[in-house]
Design a protein around this nucleic acid. Structure first.
Length: 249
DNA sequence: ATGTCGGAATTGTTCCGA
């Protein structure tokens, strides 16, 4: 079974890249983030055999799960947080969450506190509804670089979000509950970045960040994991690359 | 590093968010 996560930065704008990518990569389950629409283009992926669970209300945020191995028990609520940033479903043998964690914007910005509160609510809801002995994955854009090596130059991030101890502790709380950080094979150099800013030739210089994750319980046997850098290249690319994971379920 | 995107309203340019 092949699963993947991809922040597409608008599913409408990304359809000319998403559809061929689905055909070539052939994932069974895909978690998408930043769909940026209220109406997911269901018909365009239904032809490839995918059912869709989508939570989106307009120009910002929006998350989806595409599955061709079944889609049941869809939920999209996170207590106290109305923005569409979480959708979960049972996809065949695997329970799947697609997450788009708030960016945080800047230290001292109310959005940073909102980010930490959102993480806390996620941990609480996860623990209240699931147990770590079930096959379950959290996939998505966590907007946190868990280790200093997950950004191209840690010194650039002094005083910035994504690398602070509270943000990293929020991710470790998820891991401590019973999830493994499925680190992808490096695609270039020795680091598996998943995001490169559109500006300043960051992709070309490989100045990226690892902020998109697949977190899996121990009962999800991982066979392989890679970052699809090709999807980040060329005309009409998202600023994030997909993470693709093969599991033996 | 701040060189680009994407969406929408204040439209054929400006703004916000990332």
């Amino acid at each position: 079974m092949r699963i993947a996560t991809w922040n597409v930065n608008s599913v409408g704008a990304r359809l000319p890249r998403l559809v061929p990518w689905l055909e070539e990569t052939s994932p069974d389950v895909v978690a998408l983030q930043e769909t940026k629409t209220a109406t997911f283009p269901v018909a365009e992926v239904a032809g490839l055999g995918y059912e869709v669970a989508h939570s989106g209300d307009g120009r910002w945020n929006g998350v989806a799960i595409l599955s061709r191995v079944g889609l049941a028990d869809v939920e999209n609520e996170l207590a106290g947080h109305p923005e569409p940033r979480l959708v979960s479903a049972q996809c065949g043998p695997l329970h799947v969450h697609s997450l788009y964690v708030p960016n945080g914007r800047a230290l001292g910005d109310p959005h940073y506190d909102y980010k930490l509160a959102w993480f806390a609510s996620l941990s609480e809801q996860l623990a209240s509804r699931h147990t770590p002995d079930q096959p379950l994955v959290l996939m998505g854009d966590l907007n946190v670089a868990l280790h200093d090596e997950d950004v191209w130059d840690r010194s650039v991030f002094d005083g910035s979000t994504h690398v602070t101890e509270p943000e990293r502790a929020a991710v470790r709380r998820l891991l401590d509950w019973g999830l493994v950080d499925v680190e992808a094979r490096p695609g270039k150099g020795d680091r598996a970045f998943t995001y490169w800013d559109y500006r300043a030739g960051m992709m070309h210089k490989n100045l990226g960040m690892r902020i998109d994750y697949v977190l899996a319980t121990a009962s999800v046997p991982v066979v392989d994991a890679y970052v699809d850098r090709e999807a980040r290249k060329g005309k009409g690319a998202s600023d994030h690359a997909p993470v693709v994971v093969d599991v033996d379920l």
